[in-house]
Design a protein around this nucleic acid. Structure first.
Lengths: 351, 351
DNA sequence: TTTGTTTGTTTAATGAATTTACAAAGTCCA
DNA sequence: TGGACTTTGTAAATTCATTAAACAAACAAA
């Protein structure tokens, strides 16, 4: 059965258009909304009054007149409700309570060593509980929880596979919903990052963007026409597993010469450990060497930047997005990575 | 100004849902449409009667009763109008007149040697004129013209760049609209192929598919959620220019080791000409050798199949589409290409 | 023959947007 | 200072597509 149209659908469409406009362009008046949406003033008045009644908007007083009666300015009520967002990392949990504007109200960061599902889930639970306790009184309370994970999940919020956590088939969404009784969404960390950058970050003006998160591996989130693109079974966006060397090193994904074998933190550390003969070398140490202009370290970072660039060129050629945003832990090394990366990109991609 | 909702929007939505259902599942009755869409019988009746009045549907008589009054069956009226589709090739023009069911009514195929824009356009014009003359009398007449071109175009139907035709910045859409005064759409041959396969071909059941057209180069059309994906400036989908060999041969696109340098007809012929010492060897000759089980030819085709497979694996890893459809001239060689291709795909991609 | 089912239409009710009119509160200029 | 014009927002009447309910026609099965 398809989505058919009726009167309630119309109202939903128009109400959400009005709300969205208030959210993004407030403060503004009813008259201006009518002008910009094409709806009549009467319709806008009625919808706005309903929004005010349901606490999603506020009147904040008169504005400047433009030659006639003064407009009553409207503001989106970010304090109508709150939400919890969690970045579930391999060795940390980073959780935040935000209002509906995305403003962070409370934050918790804690380190943990990758351990069993039970331990991590217990910590996660405590974390979220204490954030919810800190939420101010509000009409809608805490409306939902979102979790970004370093791995794949399906539509039902089951963590199918998170190699670096060692998780497999963990029904995280259901576990959290059973605990907190509010809606929970689970998604890949790169997808979450992509949506975040689109809404609040560097991609606010762009309708299409690719977010590349370079950490232990490479994760990517793809936004097309303001919407996150998912492949059919949730396994899409594995740009990290594009082969950039068709007869290169074998990858655990089955393919050979995958990009992430050459352009990830893991790859960098492997090279570095070989170069320095120190099998326990850490990223921070390498960056120390680089700061001291150690030629070996600089060389390693330059190579890495170049490899990253090769993959970026592929992304440009395939998706031609308006923006490419690079995030993840390796972003700390941006100073060294950017020049060789940009050189490759400029040389190899269409304008 | 955004699309707001009003009563006419509702009607448009519902009418198109009903029409689409008739088009795809006819013959069927009003009652069945009501059941399947969730609309009431009264609404469906009213919409169907309007469709009949505007000649888009027909009643074709009573069907079998299922225990009550016999249903009046409805049929989509494919003869309400006609359309012209053109495949503008490098050395040929292939044009067809179809009805609204996509049934081909008339067809014209002609060879031409790649020549100036003026000559090709004159031939194209004659071609289309003679097809339009052959269109039967109908309520809507010939409603539009679609042209697939071997190159890039923008939203205004300007052929930005068609290397194998030698065209640059040709406003083909406007030229045709000025001549015929009906809507014209221009698009890349691979995009057109992708949409065609989705509607009428091997991808009818799939919501996402990638169409790979392997000819002189490699073109790709990407369908996501039943919609063609275009990059921001119309230059997207250049999967052919994914680098599969990061320090491989330089490509005229600026990148190195592009897939199409290894997996296209051009690549095959270059290898073949070198192998046989015949600088004018043609594809048909090579296929002749292959038919005679000539080991050199078989080897070349096997290599090509493997290279194609490498790129297909990349497509799977990035898009994870429901279907991948391979078309183009090299499809003739499918018998030899398929085994090595499938071997690579099975070995290297996730299930 | 009776009962129940299926198809499709008719009629009245519902509800959301539009149109038209208008009151309130300004600005601007002579 | 006063009148003309603007701008903002609300109110009442109108329009129109859908739904709900009732119903007639046609038919199968008991």
């Amino acid at each position: 059965m398809k989505q058919t149209g009726d009167l309630t659908l119309i109202k939903k469409i128009n109400k959400s258009i009005v709300l969205e406009m208030i959210r993004r362009e407030s403060p503004l008046s009813r008259a201006r909304i009518a002008e910009r949406t094409g709806l009549t003033k009467a319709t806008v008045s009625s919808l706005v009054n309903e929004l005010i009644e349901s606490n999603l908007a506020h009147e904040i007083g008169m504005g400047q007149s433009r030659g006639g009666r003064k407009p009553m300015l409207l503001l989106f009520n970010g304090a109508a409700g709150y939400a919890v967002g969690v970045d579930l990392g391999v060795s940390y949990i980073h959780a935040a309570l935000t209002d509906l504007n995305g403003q962070i109200i409370e934050e918790i960061r804690l380190q943990n060593d990758a351990s069993s599902v039970e331990t991590v889930f217990a910590e996660l639970k405590d974390c979220i509980h204490s954030l919810i306790r800190k939420a101010p009184e509000s009409p809608y309370g805490v409306i939902g929880i979102g979790v970004g994970i370093p791995g794949f999940s399906d539509e039902e919020g089951i963590v199918l596979f998170a190699p670096n956590l060692g998780w497999e088939n963990v029904p995280l969404q259901k576990m959290l919903e059973d605990e907190f009784h509010i809606p929970v969404v689970i998604d890949n960390e790169a997808n979450v990052g992509a949506v975040g950058e689109m809404r609040f970050g560097a991609g606010r003006e762009a309708a299409s963007l690719v977010y590349v998160s370079i950490g232990a591996g490479i994760g990517t989130g793809i936004i097309i026409k303001d919407e996150l693109y998912r492949g059919i079974s949730g396994f899409s966006g594995e740009i990290g597993h594009i082969s950039i060397h068709h007869d290169g090193k074998p990858c655990r994904c089955g393919n050979s010469g995958c990009w992430e074998l050459y352009a990830s933190e893991k790859a960098l550390l492997e090279e570095a450990r070989a170069a320095y003969g120190n099998p326990r070398m850490k990223l921070s140490e390498l960056l120390q060497f680089a700061k001291q202009s150690d030629p070996k370290a600089l060389r390693l970072l330059e190579d890495l930047g170049r490899y990253i660039g090769v993959g970026i060129v592929n992304i440009i050629n395939v998706f031609n997005p308006e923006r490419i945003i690079i995030g993840g832990r390796l972003a700390e090394a941006a100073d060294w990575l950017k020049p060789p990366l940009m050189e490759i990109v400029e040389k190899r991609s269409l304008p």
